[in-house]
Design a protein around this nucleic acid. Structure first.
Length: 671
DNA sequence: CTAGGGTTAG
């Protein structure tokens, strides 16, 4: 095949990596710029200042005979985005050559002006490989993959840069399959010898496809090809593996990275862990990164903040925020949203509002984060106010905005607002309610005790098949309002949809128990145990001195366990003298009465509270994060402790925040 | 002297 010979460019001289510009440039001596240029060799790139000095020297001399030098100046202007000056100089030069043209075209391509780039390309007297390659990569960067492919097809001679440019055009514009196909074509037909850049171009495409099989193939191909797996390639591999959900391989490659001094080696691993909800490991990695003195950047912060938010580690979150300010990390809506979310989830709604206020260029995402934050704190009125403001400022409303508003209504008990807003989804906002929106409205009605209406929505008003979350929220409402009949109905569906989920058995059992139907409660527990269904372990964590302390039920693993249990006994005595009785109905297992009382009293959030009381500064509220919903006994417990010990307690459970002050909870016992 | 590459995104 003729084409084969033409494009086989193994020995093409342009296939050699050029040197990066030297940043330690001495000040140019105006008196003799040409000798400076000759002394420093040809492949030098200049700063804008140097280019300007050279430029004015040439204007003075009315000479531009040295094309190497002139092209360098054009390049410097173009590469810095000053296309006006670059183009003016280009126009003035009489002996301009193919490099001058190509340099200018590349400049226009880099600022996204492919119209002018194409015009210039069409009017060039002669073109070489580089001119075509510049065009392809230019189209790729502007998102015009069709044009990139067309240019590629028109070439009569291609080198590895042409192939790589086409692959990355596809890869960076969401055409993962096409990128991988071009990569395979090139290799199968033996048209090029792959190099590092080729792998770096195709790996993001595989990452996007999420196909671990392709990923492993390419990885082993890299290893067999003998290409040095340097830090940059490691980062790409880590990112690929983490996006293909193979965190173990990602970590293995991360560990094998020969140089981890650059933040870009850490970011893919960090965001991979966070994307896969492995927040504790992400925080651990982040600590390791601090230990290795690697400076965080914008990407690190966007990645780590959700992990901080999840753990509720407020002091770490505050540290991250001040780091952002100290290091002048650019603040935009994305980072702002991450900060707002973090502060809200760490229990500091005021600080979240502070961040929200100062972010410029507020996006829907940012408003959503703020409204959701207010919702989980039970600040329903403020959430609705913010929503009106959002509409006044003409921001687009999306699915998350709708969920946020419905959540706000739910947590604050605004049933009428919630119903009105729900009907507005279709009528006013012209959106189709999503499954999560039906979930919210069922929740709103259910909490208000309007169980028949909630059931009616599920059975008759939804065009979508109800999911587990919806049935659970109905079942939860039946538990709150003691409705056995509808509870059984919801449980029946849950047992079909998720027979291995413990919460339906637990809830149904306690509904029977509360209705005085102990026999059926016991049967329910039996059914669960015989089915081999395990209860999801509840845990609570509390941050102290930058460390997150985690407690399970009846946990004795903490180094200060003895003090904690002594404190807990002390609390129990004080509470009992105030008439507190543990609610033993809540104990799921068939234990002796005393054991039941202990089991209740050693709930993880109570352990965390005891630890917090012996460990925290008087003024600071205790901030506890619980992975499941808080039980009603713990809720009573917290209210009393906040009063007796005169200590504010903030608990984040699976659903929302509870601020306990002086014997009262911000949720008004409505959760 | 000109061309291709890695990290974030409710």
């Amino acid at each position: 095949m003729v084409l084969n010979n033409l494009v086989n460019v193994r020995h093409h001289p342009t296939n050699v990596r050029r040197k990066k510009p030297d940043s330690t440039v001495k000040q140019l001596e105006i008196s003799n710029p040409v000798s400076y240029f000759l002394l420093n060799g040809r492949s030098k790139r200049y700063t804008v200042q140097e280019a300007k000095q050279l430029h004015s020297y040439f204007i003075k001399l009315k000479s531009d005979s040295n094309m190497y030098l002139v092209n360098s100046i054009i390049h410097t202007y173009a590469a810095n985005g000053d296309l006006n000056t670059a183009h003016r100089l280009f126009d003035r030069v009489i002996d301009r050559d193919v490099v001058s043209w190509t340099t200018l075209i590349d400049g226009y391509a880099k600022i996204g002006n492919m119209g002018v780039a194409q015009q210039l390309f069409d009017s060039m007297p002669e073109r070489n490989l580089v001119s075509w390659n510049v065009l392809i990569s230019g189209f790729g960067k502007c998102g015009d993959v069709k044009a990139a492919k067309k240019a590629f097809d028109q070439m009569i001679e291609r080198d590895i840069v042409s192939w790589n440019s086409l692959i990355s055009s596809y890869a960076r514009n969401g055409f993962a399959k096409e990128a991988f196909e071009v990569f395979c074509d090139a290799l199968v037909e033996n048209l090029v010898t792959p190099n590092k850049v080729m792998f770096l171009s195709v790996l993001p495409a595989i990452a996007e496809s999420g196909c671990a099989f392709w990923g492993r193939c390419v990885h082993s191909f890299i290893l067999r090809s003998g290409i040095e797996v340097d830090s940059v390639l490691c980062s790409a591999l880590v990112d690929m593996y983490s996006k293909c959900d193979d965190l173990d391989m990602a970590f293995q490659v991360f560990e094998s990275n020969p140089f981890r001094g650059n933040v870009a080696s850490w970011n893919p691993m960090l965001s991979g862990l966070v994307r896969n909800q492995r927040f504790e490991e992400a925080l651990e990695l982040f600590r390791w990164m601090q230990f290795e003195n690697v400076e965080s950047d914008y990407v690190t912060m966007v990645a780590i903040l959700p992990a901080i938010a999840d753990s509720g580690a407020l002091s770490l979150g505050k540290w991250a925020h001040s780091y952002i300010q100290k290091m002048n990390i650019r603040m935009n809506a994305t980072l702002g949203s991450a900060l707002v979310d973090m502060y809200a989830k760490c229990g500091c709604i005021e600080l979240a509002l502070d961040v929200f206020a100062v972010v410029e260029g507020k996006t829907t995402e940012l408003w959503n984060a703020m409204i959701t934050g207010l919702a989980i704190h039970g600040c329903g009125r403020d959430a609705l106010k913010l929503f009106s403001q959002m509409q006044i400022e003409n921001l687009e409303i999306d699915d998350l905005t709708v969920s946020a508003i419905l959540n706000a209504c739910s947590h604050s008990g605004f049933v009428d607002d919630g119903l009105r807003f729900f009907s507005n989804i279709k009528d006013v906002y012209k959106m189709t309610p999503k499954i999560q929106h039906y979930g919210c409205i069922v929740d709103i009605l259910g909490r208000a005790g309007r169980l028949e209406e909630a059931k009616d929505i599920i059975c008759n008003k939804m065009s979508i098949k109800p999911d587990i979350i919806i049935w659970k929220s109905l079942l939860g409402a039946c538990r709150t309002h003691g409705n056995v009949e509808i509870g059984e109905f919801a449980a029946k569906h849950l047992f079909e949809l998720c027979p291995n989920d413990s919460s339906s058995y637990v809830l149904m059992s306690s509904i029977y128990e509360a209705a005085g139907r102990s026999n059926e409660a016991v049967l329910m527990r039996k059914k669960m145990i015989e089915g081999g269904v395990k209860k999801e372990p509840g845990f609570s964590s509390i941050e102290s001195g930058g460390v997150v302390h985690k407690f399970l039920v009846g946990d004795k693993a903490h180094p200060r366990a003895e003090e904690i249990y002594t404190m807990l006994d002390d609390i129990r005595e004080k509470l009992k003298s105030r008439g507190y009785q543990p609610n033993k109905q809540l104990v799921f297992f068939d234990l002796h009465d005393d054991e039941k009382e202990d089991a209740i009293f050693h709930h993880s959030e109570k352990l965390a509270t005891a630890f917090g009381l012996i460990n925290s500064n008087r003024g600071d509220p205790l901030r506890i994060v619980k992975n499941l919903r808080m039980c009603s006994d713990c809720h009573v417990f917290m209210k009393l402790v906040s009063e007796i010990y005169n200590h504010e307690i903030v608990v984040r459970d699976h659903n929302r925040f509870h601020h306990f002050v002086n014997g009262k909870c911000s949720c008004m016992d409505y959760w």
